[in-house]
Nucleic acid binder design. Structure first.
Lengths: 356, 356
DNA sequence: CATCAGCGTGAGAGCGCTCCCAGATTCAGG
DNA sequence: CCTGAATCTGGGAGCGCTCTCACGCTGATG
């Protein structure tokens, strides 16, 4: 046990008590606590000694009441359990990026996580009602035309989204990745290694990420002068099950030689369907996913995929938010982080080398 | 947009303002807001009308200052990033269970998540300093002999742990599963279907979960009158990579016909090593994992494993904590949730039916 | 020696709420 | 009609802090 290294304040003393014990006024203790100037070195040390000895910590509620600052930020994840559960690495990584910042800059992180889409409205109401609990918000997977965002802007609550905004482009701060370019690079890689019947399984198309990844697929084919066959585009909704079903029912009968899936879990579903049909990956059909989840390295064959800087996304979003809150930045900021195509076994690069 | 359904309080009115507009006193508005008796129906409606119209929400800091309640609970996850990242489904599921409760009972959830083991002490200090921010805590993966727990008890902060405690058995509340029995059942199943050289890959043995699962393995063999060969026990630390390496380097040369892994990710690592050695799962070596992650259903062969009620664990822990906070329960509570052996392809049950 | 800027300290007000107490009103029962 | 209990309402204190202001002190400057 290392009790002596931990501070706590069992007696719940207040500023007044500390002042009395140190023989100074409440104001002076406040100045010392907040590291303000105009306190003599002698007094400062005297007060600090008492503070240490009594394990005094100021009451956050009293502080907030007058400063109107809480040193707490909120992270809003309205997503229902299904998506979170399958793509379970995304939110932990994002949150880890956020807490990396809040831990070092001494903020606390309040988690607003929905349990079902039906309750989304209830969650938003609670967040708005309790907005004085937080100095600012990070919004994950929230449509920018959502009423929540309009309210936050009106109430002047600082916030940063980690989604490509569909409106307010320069009025709100966001951190995202170039999904179009990332998808384009993946499909271009298929073309470069000689694949010709390239199919895609899209994500949910009401989602900017889903839309952009499909756009990248189209652009890559067009730029290569190849026709876009709409039949080779299957709607997969980001999910394992639909990835499997769409491959089995829609794509395999059309004999594709490559599949670009807009998420890793759909890619794994596709591979499962391909194997069940007695075909090989990547020899018969090459596959590239999107996300680079830990499972990409663990599957057989290992999955080629687009690596997303998820941790960095949370990190940058939190950094921007705190700068906004602390007034270090006045203007909104828009950040687009780079992605990387990670080549593993499933895309068949080792079979037919890039033709330059 | 559905702005009209969302409430917000842009003008930041206070009780006094509402009272003036409603033509009553501050006290009366307070009674209405808090749904207290001794307010006439007429007055109540008059006040509610103004509250609705102005989208008034009470200031939580002011409220907390006098009630000493925050309606916020904290969830502490000191675990470093590596473990979280591989076994990434565990904490989201646990958190989801917690927020299911906090959402319906109108509490907010503060996330204390460490970024490295080195900073664990710093994190604990921050939690203790800021303890007045929360009404209680849920502690995940924290050793019960940790100094943090001693401090919380001394400060009379209500808390519930989701780990088998190593001390204070009846003094603290916890929610856990019977790891010993679960592991015993898994190994017993191997024995029942005729496997005789049963190996195990253990979790981290400084962890109660890891210890108990190994104990269950030993008990199953002993009860069946089979010898425990220490060479067939490999230390896997819960991780994919070590699961793979231990199987390849230590276990395969000993020709086991079954492997019980103390986590799914290790089981997947083991299967990978078995396949690379040109052997088949489950024909040559049967495998059972532990956790029942979503990936268990997606691998090939699908993974037999012990299903853990992780969501329920968070749910029950949060329920107990809120009961404790609200005084609905005085005493601590200890809950052991049931596990379930989920039979899929990797354990070979379909090959050699249970011999009764 | 008077003046004044700058440092160091303390007193008082007030953030927005809850809670206690006192007073007003209503109404049943003798 | 009076009494006392129950119901309703308002005023005041106070939770623990920050922030503004005023005041005393020091030492440099003209």
């Amino acid at each position: 046990m290392n009790s002596e290294r931990i501070r706590s304040n069992p007696k719940n003393l207040n500023l007044e008590d500390i002042a009395r014990k140190a023989g100074v006024s409440r104001s002076t203790v406040s100045r010392v606590i907040n590291n303000e100037p105009y306190v003599s070195q002698r007094t400062r040390e005297k007060v600090m000694a008492v503070v240490q000895q009594e394990n005094y910590a100021p009451n956050p509620a009293a502080r907030t009441l007058v400063t109107r600052r809480t040193r707490v930020i909120g992270v809003v994840i309205p997503t229902s359990i299904q998506l979170v559960f399958e793509d379970s690495a995304y939110f932990p990584a994002l949150l880890q990026g956020v807490v990396d910042v809040t831990n070092t800059r001494d903020y606390a992180t309040l988690l607003w996580w929905g349990n079902s889409e039906a309750d989304e409205q209830t969650l938003y109401n609670r967040i708005l009602q309790q907005n004085r609990l937080m100095d600012g918000l990070i919004l994950a997977s929230i449509r920018t035309d959502d009423a929540l965002i309009a309210h936050l802007m009106r109430m002047k609550v600082p916030f940063v989204t980690v989604e490509r905004p569909t409106t307010y482009h320069s009025e709100i701060s966001y951190v995202t990745v170039d999904n179009v370019e990332a998808a384009e690079n993946a499909v271009k890689h298929f073309i470069d290694i000689g694949r010709r019947r390239i199919a895609t399984i899209t994500g949910a198309l009401n989602n900017p990420d889903g839309q952009d990844r499909l756009l990248g697929y189209r652009l890559a084919l067009e730029k290569a002068g190849m026709p876009v066959d709409e039949a080779l585009i299957a709607d997969g909704q980001f999910r394992y099950q639909t990835g499997y079903e769409m491959t089995k029912g829609q794509l395999l009968p059309l004999n594709p030689d490559a599949i670009f899936a807009a998420s890793d879990v759909m890619a794994h579903g596709a591979i499962q369907a391909i194997h069940e049909a007695g075909l090989r990956v990547p020899e018969d059909i090459a596959v590239i996913g999107f996300d680079d989840l830990p499972t990409a390295m663990q599957s057989k064959p290992t999955l080629s995929t687009v690596h997303l800087p998820v941790h960095e996304r949370g990190f940058v979003a939190a950094s921007i938010l705190l700068d906004l809150i602390e007034g270090k930045t006045q203007e909104t900021r828009q950040v687009i982080l780079p992605t990387e195509l990670v080549i593993r076994e499933s895309c068949g690069t080792h079979l037919r080398p890039v033709s330059k």
